[in-house]
């Protein structure tokens, strides 16, 4: 049965897929690691799993798209899921969250679900950060968890498509899984590609010959939620979904109003630092209905304890407030600092 859920507990968000259309060319090549290979191993959780959420809802354009794993054979993928269900979590209920942009997998999954009582299909808005665990749990199961809290404690397991194929290969078929797909994109690269890379390969080797000759910065798992990598000898593990290389635009560009395409997707802040003008952009875009400017003002007045009174723990650190702020304030940084002093207490 199909449940279309729109804007349930989710008034803000931002359609990044529209704002930054990225196209991946179809080249999928295998990059072997020279050193020690690492393998994927699935550890069965200790808790009793009651709900399994399959996340097929990438909301960032630089994330691995669905077609790489599904290969337009959604039924086959769901058959794999059924095997996993029989083997590992027979009593759990399955929820498939698919982005609304992928009409083909939705149709196939609907077709499949009409004969399968154990699963439900959810067509979700492809708005960032819909695929965040907190948002998924809220929209699908109506369960409230705080950011950073493990959903496993409530008996809920969230899996992405690639992990499910890997569990199937490793657990059901008994093959060793030592490689994974990674999306490579960004303005610092010659081409946007999807690569199949062995675990344990250093990032250096992956990016070799692919980067443009300019100052670039490398980000793992996207520039919004991910982290910056300065040490390129870091090895790729299973948690790496995508690598993004962005141009470091640290010089002034003349006539920026007519060059928005050239400036987009660079690390430039695209504006000058100003004082907060209370424009309400941050609380309009906030997916969890917080008011980030309140934290900023509390912080600048030196009243971190006050910031914590305004539902600070609900923040999922998606970074949209800093992203949208026309005054270019570091709102996410402020929120994180307000949170840190909480832990120290």
């Amino acid at each position: 049965m199909l449940k279309e859920k729109e804007n349930i507990g989710f008034n803000g968000g931002f359609d990044l897929l529209d704002a930054y259309p990225l196209r991946f060319c179809n080249i999928v090549e295998r990059i072997p690691s020279d050193g020690i290979q690492e393998t994927f191993e699935f550890r069965i959780p200790d808790q009793k799993i009651r709900h399994v959420i399959v996340n097929l809802c990438p909301t960032e354009p630089w994330e691995l798209p669905n077609w790489v794993i599904l290969e337009h054979k959604t039924t086959e993928f769901l058959n794999k899921l059924k095997e996993i269900k029989i083997r590992y979590f027979p009593e759990a209920r399955y929820y498939i969250a698919i982005t609304k942009k992928d009409s083909e997998p939705i149709a196939e999954a609907m077709n499949y679900a009409s004969n399968a009582e154990w699963m439900e299909i959810f067509a979700l808005d492809p708005k960032y950060p819909q695929d965040d665990p907190v948002m998924l749990l809220k929209v699908i199961l109506d369960v409230d968890v705080n950011f950073g809290q493990d959903a496993m404690t409530q008996g809920i397991l969230i899996l992405d498509a690639q992990t499910i194929s890997a569990i199937y290969e490793n657990g059901i078929l008994g093959n060793t899984v030592n490689s994974r797909f990674i999306a490579l994109s960004g303005t610092g690269l010659k081409e946007n590609e999807i690569i199949n890379v062995q675990l344990g390969t250093p990032i250096e080797k992956v990016l070799h010959n692919r980067m443009k000759a300019c100052t670039c910065r490398v980000f793992i798992n996207g520039p919004l939620r991910g982290r910056e990598i300065t040490d390129l000898s870091l090895k790729i593990d299973w948690a790496v979904n995508n690598i993004m290389v962005l141009k470091e635009l640290d010089s002034k560009v003349i006539f920026p109003m007519i060059k928005s395409d050239e400036l987009a997707l660079t690390t430039n802040v695209l504006g000058e630092l100003r004082r907060c003008v209370y424009c309400n952009f941050c609380d309009d875009i906030c997916p969890v209905n917080l008011e980030p400017a309140l934290y900023y003002h509390s912080y600048t007045r030196g009243e971190k304890h006050k910031a914590r009174l305004y539902n600070l723990e609900k923040c999922i650190e998606c970074g949209l407030c800093s992203f949208i702020c026309p005054s270019k304030l570091e709102l996410l940084q402020t929120i994180k600092e307000c949170k840190i002093s909480d832990k120290q207490k």
């Binding site: 910065r217 910056e228 640290d250 002034k252 430039n268 952009f281 702020c325 026309p326 940084q333």
Partner: peptide
């Protein structure tokens, strides 16, 4: 001209909309 500041903390891309 645009400014030359780059994002030093998360998020590393910013919207093209300023005061």
């Amino acid at each position: 001209r645009s400014s030359k500041e780059t994002a030093q903390s998360q998020p590393f891309i910013r919207n093209n909309y300023d005061v």
